[in-house]
Design a protein around this nucleic acid. Structure first.
Lengths: 191, 191, 191, 191
DNA sequence: CATGAATGAGACTTCATTCAT
DNA sequence: CATGAATGAAGTCTCATTCAT
């Protein structure tokens, strides 16, 4: 399902991402993209069949090039690794901070909303699996419902990344992420 | 600063909120609003000077009619009350769930972004004050940095409300909010 | 035919004149007029039946309150008096400088154009009469065709007033008008 | 600074000129232009970035394709040549008669007003230079101040062209222009 | 004499897209 | 792979005017 993008397509998606980060979804325009790339509007259609395709490619990028080591980790270590990976992803492409976790931006397109919802679900299930493992391995306490646990871990991470974006990278994201992990470890530690 | 709105203006803001909830910010159109209200587009301009004013009125509503009892509470009780108030606000106007906490939606307008940022800051300071009180009163543990504490409390709440919105109110928001509060109390309890 | 205007009507016409002087004919708007007068747009219609009537009243003012002594003068003296009167009119209401002699502004309305054309014709005939008298009285030379004579006298006066308006009254209009009269006297003097 | 226009752009400017001549500046509308050219309104924007650009191109045309022989003439001959050139310009594009010398039409746009003012200044300086030459060469009398001289020459010419326009070309412009030149020569001749 | 609410027409402009070249 | 010209729909907003109060 995951399409390989040509270099030019990647340029386009980069630009699209940048435009949203700059001025919101309303700033994502065929005209704007092509102007940034010194292209005609018509020229864009050589690379994508339409705006929707561009947005889909853009959203797909949220998932990042995952998996490598991810698969081999389990329990709380996997949770921390996943958190760190989000952070690294955002640091590598700061525009993402304004866009990931902003599901509302894409509410307009049913198809894209679906795509995003699927990603969120897979994401969530992955975390729930790791939580369960962590509990079973006695790494974390067992008196917090799983879905609440998910919110307690991902909610702060999302907020952290959003704050970092809104502040235009005014603080050290990695450090604050580490701080969050430490706090979570303290709070969730088995008594 | 907070304008009193006429009944008609409130109708308009309600409609605007509904439109965003339905189809994202791109669905918020002068044309759409007026069509819903069986008005001419020109007619809208009798009540607001432009789209921006409507959005500002809409965003101002996020703060809700606060304060009543809020002022008298302190420490952790104030935190829980504030959380509950958010929940009630959303339950009273479910469209809000798709829009509050969606700062990105309004990135387009510099002015609105500013307005929102101001609200977030006031909100944050209020919470930090209450956290400090709660720590000093030995209600919660003191080994979590204040800003992380803020993220740990508000992050999950935001995520919860967003999930409720995305699922179209598929679960009992109030119950889950209560569950979140219980979990937080457990986690943050002084040892 | 010349209507007496109520004080309020005069205020309105003054404002209208001012608006045109400020921002061109496109700035003459029912809304703008009423805003300047702290009136509702609807309120304006208590005083005039529509925009056209206001413009007509405005244009009628170009003729000014003439006649008093005008009637008793003849020949070149009458010409100079008429030139001076234009100058005084403009000095009394500087906004006029941007509007009189700007027949094009009102090309839009057939009726107003007619009105203006009539004024121009009467104006012209009056001058031609005086020129004839001046020639017959040997006040000026007789080797210039009458219509060219008209252009030679009125053309520079119009240009002078327009320049004064465009420069926002940067020079002494009366003095320059006098200078023009002197020059004309020299040039047209019987050899 | 002077842009080369594409053929289509010239068509558009022609149409724009025609529309103003027909019904005043209020008649110059994107819609009207495009309708005349059997184009969509959106289609116009392929050729100009907006109304302002069209007006600027239009106004720039007032200066005409000058210079050819202009540069080689001096003194009174240059003045007469410049007068004739205006006349020819208007005869070639009669719509111009309703628009050149109608600075007020464009008072609305600050930028255009500036552009026009600049043209007027250059125009004026050129004439003043030629007047000075004519005086030094004893071609014309020297007892008229230079600025008044300018008004005495250009004022009648402007009025003549405007009259020709208002009368819809009812008389022979070239002949009347010649008559004006003859009269000026007589009046200004060295005694 | 004045207002508030509304309207229908029309203003300028931008959008995503298409098609011939 | 790219352009230039065009389109139809839609966007925000302003205009002159009306009408009930």
């Amino acid at each position: 399902m995951k399409q390989e993008l040509t270099p030019r397509q990647n340029e386009i998606v980069d630009t699209a991402l940048h435009l949203i980060a700059e001025g919101g979804i309303g700033n994502l325009t065929i005209r704007h993209i092509s102007k940034r790339l010194n292209l005609t509007e018509a020229g864009l259609y050589c690379h994508f069949n339409g705006k929707l395709e561009i947005i889909q490619a853009l959203v797909s990028r949220f998932e990042g090039e995952v998996d490598e080591k991810e698969g081999r980790l389990h329990g709380w270590a996997a949770v921390e690794s996943a958190m760190a990976r989000r952070t690294e992803l955002v640091l590598a492409t700061p525009d993402l901070a304004h866009v990931v976790f902003a599901e509302e931006l894409f509410q307009g397109d049913k198809e894209v909303a679906q795509l995003l919802f699927g990603m969120m679900q897979r994401h969530r299930e992955m975390f729930l699996r790791h939580f369960k493992e962590a509990i079973e391995a006695d790494e974390i306490r067992d008196d917090i419902p799983l879905d609440t646990l998910f919110r307690l871990v991902i909610g702060p991470l999302r907020l952290l990344i959003k704050q970092w974006g809104l502040s235009n990278g005014a603080f050290d994201l990695q450090e604050k992420c580490h701080e969050l992990q430490e706090s979570l470890k303290k709070l969730l530690a088995k008594k």
